[in-house]
Design a protein around this nucleic acid. Structure first.
Length: 645
RNA sequence: GCCGGAGUAGCUCAGGGGUAGAGCAAUUCUCUCGUAAAGAAUAGGCCAGGGGUUCGAAUCCCCUCUCCGGCUCCA
């Protein structure tokens, strides 16, 4: 018997049974073998020194610097973490320790939380284990044997009992990995020995519920990260620093955009003049595009009687997310709105509708309030009061495909206009346990959404069972300047609310027909979107979005008059200008303008007064251009400041 | 909401039972300068809030609020 492999270059190779991944890798190349942390057979990762399973298949080598390679390193690092914790805290219970994006974690119960000093000791212990270069040895065994080994480990016992037979190894077996007497339940693969871990660092601790369910006991989680080498680890730590520098919670107050006064309570922001300008520009653009795409504007109040939320179903499904009731008179409770949909529905319902009225696209920048749990609030990205660029389109079933195309096109244009050129979509489908209406309607709706995505040619993944109870939806995630992904836009199909509110229109055949609703938010929450925009641009906005577009800096007091003239010329073409009349040095005034991230700085001195010129410097450019004719500078800046049409 | 950590001047931070400190920012004066920090002086605080312990609390204890890192949730 032999093992037949298809090598990465497409050639076939036969090896005797018992050959290991390492040996095959060596036959391809010594350097490749040295960089390997595991191999795959038909995409399934296998330990480097484990005999390859018959009958073979498509073979590839997993090197440390790949996503899969890193996840092997991280999984092994998690294993070493558990080993260190159990060595330092005998009797600790350990639960699960998977690799995650950029790192790994492991959950423990040591009867108390970990302290920062614990973390230091644990990391030191891990360094010891890594230095000892202990080999990882894989062993497949029966569940009974594994249960005996982990008899005093309640979480491991529970995992062994719940592992799906066939998912791990062959039949009813589970696998464990041993190194130097420490044994952990694990499907693998691992690196061959602990010494292969060259760049491991523990980051933080936190509480985490067993199996992610808050009804379960809370365990203590330790987070760490691991990379193929020191350089990659340092690059990662630097990436974290870069993200910290872009943090909108830091940049917002620094650039004087917004703040969260303690007096208002958690999750409630006030916008300062510069942030107000930023937001006005965003709202202007939103209204312009809504108009261009054929939406009408409506305005609705922030409060409604509880009965409305009863009909909409919010009190039944969403009460926990709503602020508590206000009792204004004996008969009625009022609630602040967490969503705008019922109000827009009432606009639709205000008179009888004909098929000739459809599609009816109603939009509003609607302020909503949601009682987010205190621990989840995160600057503008998760607030308790925010504004949705919300729209509700009422349409016939026949119009649905065209309407969905229009909505997606709108959303993508909106995102492009703010510099988000990379996005991916998620199509969330029906959850059989939480879905209204028959499956046929859902299938039709999901198919419409799928076709819409296909036609637009954007990448999407299916999010099985993640739909709202009223219908399937498309969520758009954008990738920002440093590669992070943010969920912003959403397009949702809704068959339920038209039902609950008994919406109808009169068809050409003179019958009453129920319309379908499309809920759509392009930015999602304006606050959240602006938070993402701030982080995307690191506060250095493109000129059309910058609250102050140009700083005019006179060299000395005698140039202030000319500076004022320059400022007036710029204002006349619609630019937002700041004239710096302070008595600081030129260097200091420029430093202040650059610190405030103004897109352009104009310096004017004697030569400029004499020749009607200015010195021009853009944010991000080290070099200024002196002696630019004022007329030329004005038209150039006006052109740079043009926003998306 | 839960588990940790934290809250001292506008910002960044030091101090740690006995009269509250620095740098930057602010204000005033001097300087009038060509591309990332001129000089001097002045002012600025219920040490998050409320209770306790103590002769005495910013400091020790308890509660609340707010923020940070996670869990959970989600636009």
């Amino acid at each position: 018997m032999s093992i037949e492999l298809i090598l990465p270059d497409g050639t076939k190779a036969e090896h005797p049974q018992g050959v290991t991944g390492r040996q095959v890798a060596e036959s391809i190349g010594a350097r490749l073998a040295a960089a390997a942390v595991a191999v795959t057979i038909d995409g399934v990762a296998v330990d480097l020194d484990r005999p390859l399973p018959a009958p073979g298949g498509e073979f590839s080598v997993v090197t440390a610097e790949t996503d899969l390679g890193r996840s092997v390193l991280r999984h092994s690092a998690a294993h070493v973490l558990a080993q260190a914790v159990l060595a330092l805290h005998p009797g600790a219970a350990f639960a699960i320790g998977p690799p995650i994006e950029d790192g790994f974690y492991y959950d423990f119960d040591i009867g108390r939380p970990f302290t920062p000093e614990d973390l230091e000791r644990i990391e030191a212990k891990m360094t010891e284990i890594i230095a000892a270069d202990q080999p990882f040895v894989r062993e497949a065994m029966s569940r009974d044997k594994a249960l005996a080994i982990f008899a005093d480990q309640p979480f491991k016992t529970e995992i062994i009992k719940s592992v799906d037979p066939g998912e791990v190894g062959a039949g009813d077996e589970v696998t464990v990995y041993r190194n130097n007497g420490f044994v952990d339940l694990c499907r693998g693969p691992h690196v061959t020995s602990t010494g292969r871990l060259r760049a491991v660092k523990l980051l933080r601790t936190s509480g985490a519920y067993w199996r992610g369910d808050e009804k379960n006991p809370q365990l203590q989680r330790i987070y760490g990260t691991a990379w193929e080498d020191r350089k990659a680890l340092d690059a990662y730590l630097q990436r974290l620093e870069e993200a910290e520098k872009r943090d909108h919670r830091k940049l917002g107050p620094d650039l004087d955009l917004f703040s969260f006064p303690h007096e208002l309570g958690s999750g409630l922001a006030v916008w300062h003049p510069k942030g107000g300008m930023l937001r006005k520009l965003l709202e202007d653009h939103s209204r312009k595009l809504h108009e261009a795409y054929g939406f009408d504007f409506v305005f609705t109040p922030h409060l409604a009687r509880a009965e409305l939320w009863q009909i909409s179903g919010h009190l039944e499904w969403y009460a926990e997310g709503m602020f508590p009731p206000m009792e204004l008179d004996a008969d009625h409770e009022y609630r602040v709105k967490p969503m705008n949909c019922p109000f827009h529905i009432l606009v639709y319902k205000s008179r009888a509708r004909s098929y000739r009225d459809l599609p009816m696209r109603l939009s509003e920048l609607g302020g909503v309030y949601r009682y987010e749990r205190s621990g989840t609030i995160h600057g503008l990205l998760r607030a308790r009061g925010f504004t949705q660029d919300d729209s509700h389109t009422f349409t016939t079933r026949e119009q649905l495909p065209a309407e969905l195309d229009l909505h997606l096109k709108f959303v993508l244009q909106w995102l492009r206009d703010f510099g988000f050129t990379e996005y991916k979509a998620e199509l969330s489908t029906r959850d059989p346990d939480k879905a209204m209406g028959g499956t046929a309607v859902w299938e039709e709706a999901t198919e419409y959404l799928r076709q819409t995505l296909e036609a637009a040619g954007i990448d999407y993944s299916i999010n099985e069972g993640d739909a709202a109870f009223y219908g399937p939806k498309i969520d758009i995630h954008v990738r920002d300047a440093i590669g992070r992904s943010w969920q912003v836009s959403t397009i949702q199909l809704d068959y339920l609310l038209p039902e609950r509110f008994e919406l109808e229109y009169i068809s050409a055949e003179n019958t009453a027909v129920r319309p379908v609703m499309i809920h759509c938010a392009k930015a999602g929450s304006l606050e959240r979107f602006l938070g993402v925009v701030v982080e995307h641009y690191a506060g250095a906005f493109p000129m059309w979005l910058a609250p102050i577009q140009v700083s005019v800096i006179p060299v000395a007091d005698r140039h202030i008059d000319y500076g004022g003239l320059v400022a007036e010329r710029l204002r006349a073409v619609g630019l937002r200008i700041e004239l710096d009349k302070s008595s600081e040095t030129v260097g200091e005034k420029i430093r202040q303008a650059l610190t405030a991230k103004h897109p352009a700085v104009l310096v004017v001195g004697d030569n400029d007064v004499e020749n009607s010129t200015v010195g021009v410097r853009y944010y991000g450019a080290d070099q200024e251009r002196r002696g630019v004719a004022l007329d030329e500078a004005v038209s150039e800046l006006a052109k740079v400041a043009e926003g998306p049409e």
